[in-house]
Structures are given as structure tokens and as C-alpha cells.
Amino acid sequence: MQNELDSRFILGVFEKIRQHGEAQDNGYFLDGVKAYTDMDGYTVFLEDAKVSLRFGFHNQYHYDYQHADHLEQFEKKLHAIDKQY
């Protein structure tokens, strides 16, 4: 990815999902987005049915998706969660 992710934004959305979401299967669900961490807590995962984001140590990240519009919809969900909560 060429664009840099805002670590404060990603970690803020993660925390909002954790605080306001429903705890299920080692993660939290809110508005169609699942948030969880790896065992040591250094890597954060945010995902919906079509996109997953792995955000880790030193702001390294990786998106996994098949179509650009899926990524766009995923990012809209994250921004909506950020604004609503």
C-alpha cells in the first residue's frame, strides 16, 4: 500500500469496537466489523466479511481484499464507527 494509515485512527476504532461491541469468539463485533489482537497484543486485526486489516508493530499493515470497492466500503464502516461512538 502506498497510502499511510493513521495509527491513532486505527487504534481508536479498535478501542471503540472493544468498548461498545459485543464480545464473541476471542474478539468484539460492532456494526459489521470484528476486532481482535494476536496473543501478545502487538498486532490488531479489523475485518468484515470481505476485507481484513492487520496492523502491527511499527505501524506495519496489510490489507487483504479482492475488489477495490470492498476496501472503500470497509473504510466507510471504520469512519462511521469512529464518528458514531
Rank of each mutant, 00 (worst) to 15 (best):
10 I>S: 09
26 N>A: 08
82 D>S: 13
62 H>I: 04
64 D>F: 07
60 Q>D: 02
54 R>N: 12
68 A>F: 07
13 V>K: 03
72 E>A: 06
4 E>F: 01
41 G>I: 15
34 K>T: 12
58 H>N: 15
3 N>E: 09
7 S>D: 12
66 Q>C: 06
81 I>R: 10
10 I>Y: 06
38 D>P: 02
39 M>D: 15
36 Y>T: 04
34 K>R: 08
36 Y>W: 11
59 N>Y: 00
44 V>G: 00
34 K>S: 04
58 H>G: 11
49 A>C: 07
47 E>T: 06
38 D>M: 01
52 S>A: 08
63 Y>S: 06
22 E>V: 11
26 N>V: 03
77 K>M: 12
31 D>Q: 14
44 V>S: 14
51 V>P: 07
52 S>D: 08
11 L>G: 03
46 L>Y: 07
38 D>R: 01
31 D>E: 15
32 G>V: 00
12 G>R: 00
32 G>I: 05
49 A>K: 14
18 R>G: 00
54 R>D: 10
78 L>N: 02
6 D>H: 07
70 H>I: 04
5 L>A: 08
3 N>Q: 09
32 G>H: 02
9 F>I: 04
33 V>Q: 01
58 H>A: 15
28 Y>Q: 03
18 R>C: 02
19 Q>N: 13
31 D>Y: 05
17 I>Q: 08
66 Q>R: 10
23 A>K: 12
78 L>A: 03
73 Q>M: 04
14 F>M: 11
20 H>P: 07
16 K>Y: 13
83 K>C: 01
34 K>M: 04
60 Q>E: 14
12 G>Q: 00
56 G>F: 12
36 Y>D: 08
12 G>D: 04
43 T>W: 08
1 M>T: 13
79 H>K: 15
28 Y>H: 15
29 F>W: 09
13 V>D: 02
62 H>W: 06
58 H>T: 10
9 F>C: 03
22 E>F: 14
35 A>L: 02
21 G>W: 13
42 Y>T: 13
18 R>S: 12
36 Y>G: 00
43 T>S: 05
70 H>N: 14
32 G>M: 01
26 N>M: 08
15 E>L: 11
52 S>H: 00
31 D>C: 02
17 I>G: 00
23 A>C: 05
2 Q>W: 14
69 D>S: 09
37 T>S: 12
46 L>N: 08
82 D>K: 15
75 E>P: 02
60 Q>N: 11
